[in-house]
Amino acid sequence: MQRRIVLDLDLCCGCRSCEAACKAAFKGEARIRHGDIAGAAYLPLACKHCKQPLCLASCPVEAITKDEKTGLVIRSAMVCIGCKSCAFACPFGVIDAPLVRHISQKCSLCADREGGPRCVAACSSGALQWLSDDEIKRHEIGMRMVSKDLFFRRKA
């Protein structure tokens, strides 16, 4: 069963614990970024592991592949030439291409860790969750936000 990182904007307090967990695990290169929506709310941005990834289509050396079983979109550091095509192609802007190591930094959902992504484990407010497709259908993400008109007050 595929699992995904789900962000409940109701709960995100903007502390960037997720980004810190990622940076600490990957030698200072975060694969989850932090953005703000027109100064109204802050949110972590992680790879969506798209069904039809544009980053994969744009890669000239086939460094990005999709595992059909798990749904993971994986970038091979050995093959990546650091051309930034994937970073430009990504519609969510979640792939970073730092110039230091000349390879793109892409979330692998912490495939090396049994308990799932570190950003989810670290999330101090419980805004990031690690859910299966079935759980996502049942989960009322953002419903509190809509029903209580709370987040539209979160103008910074």
């Binding site: 967990a21 308990g115 484990a121 101090s124």
Partner: peptide, 24 residues
């Protein structure tokens, strides 16, 4: 090598950026 988020800990494994930096 790094830090592990202890689910049975008092914060349920959650750690702020300072905690994540402990291994660093």
């Amino acid at each position: 090598k790094g830090v592990e988020y202890a689910k049975d800990g008092s914060s349920g494994g959650r750690l702020c950026p300072r905690g994540s930096a402990a291994a660093m």
